[in-house]
Design a protein around this nucleic acid. Structure first.
Lengths: 155, 155
DNA sequence: GTTATTCCCACTAAAAAAATAGGATTATTT
DNA sequence: AAATAATCCTATTTTTTTAGTGGGAATAAC
């Protein structure tokens, strides 16, 4: 019952992109260096995030990635679903995808379904901006993006 | 993010033991047959459940397993923790178990910790008796154990 | 003492996760 | 136009985990 490195790294990357949202496009090289991850692996993850529409990519020199929208628009659920290979707690299906023959009388599948829904609802309601606020709380200092925001809100 | 077969089978087995709680000790052979699982694999799982104190075992002819206590005393959380190899959503530790060096400034570990706590709390509050009631609701007929209970409660 | 069971642990096979590799494509810079 | 710096795509390899099997020892009943 563990989130894979893809999902975990993806969250870290998305948080990093959120913090530096005002910087424009950031290259894999920089993200990987800052987060101490393998650049090639980050590249792979970015591909998934791009396909899912969470980030925009620009190729060529001075290219890179940035969030397609501001940090408040991304939930942890979206990030996990975009990068994790299996998002379900229990596969109550056969290899071919058809439902397990015991499905109608088996109650344990309903239990896992219930757990799943609860987790998803929770992750759906946790956005990058929430996380940046948690971070501010933890560290005592706001991230660059929060500082930027407060600057504008103070008008 | 998936429960392994060990955890899933364990839940099914525990539900089965709950349903037949009044029957006394049940042998692996019978459990495996009823649940359509490999006897040897069930044996392994039973070992974990025994070590965790969830079931009692009696060896030798006419031996078998039964819940150490009545179904209301077991939460899904206990069952999962007893059988699943990794119970944490994210391992923010090095190989040796020491915390990740970025721990103090990394907020994503807190996110996973939060998710974890929420799930655990939920699973803690879901007991076998709750599941038997869900089952009664789904199938329209109570399990043997629920029938037994109602028999006594009607006094 | 034979039989039916749990117990224990080693082993293997298959699958999934984690990471690496290399070249194609695209855009910028010089 | 050529060199450079980036994403893109996908195949491959390595490592780890999962899933399951096997065999024999210990124990209790008959």
């Amino acid at each position: 019952m563990r989130i894979s490195t893809k999902g975990r790294y993806a969250l870290r990357i998305m948080i990093y992109l959120a913090e530096h949202y005002t910087f424009g496009y950031l290259a894999v090289k920089d993200i990987a260096e800052e987060e101490a991850l393998s650049p090639k692996y980050v590249e792979q993850i970015m591909g998934k995030l791009t396909k899912a529409g969470l980030v925009n990519a620009i190729r060529g020199a001075h290219g890179g990635y940035r969030l397609t929208d501001s940090p408040s628009h991304y939930s942890v659920c979206q990030i996990v679903k975009a990068t994790e290979s299996s998002t379900d707690f229990a596969p109550c299906t056969n290899v071919d995808g058809s439902p397990c023959p015991r499905h109608t009388k088996c109650i344990s599948s309903d239990v896992w379904q219930l757990v799943q829904s609860t987790v998803e609802e929770m992750l759906d309601n946790l956005t990058l901006i929430d996380i940046l606020r948690m971070q501010e709380n933890k560290l005592g200092t706001p991230s660059l993006y929060l500082t930027y925001l407060s600057h504008f809100k103070k008008n």
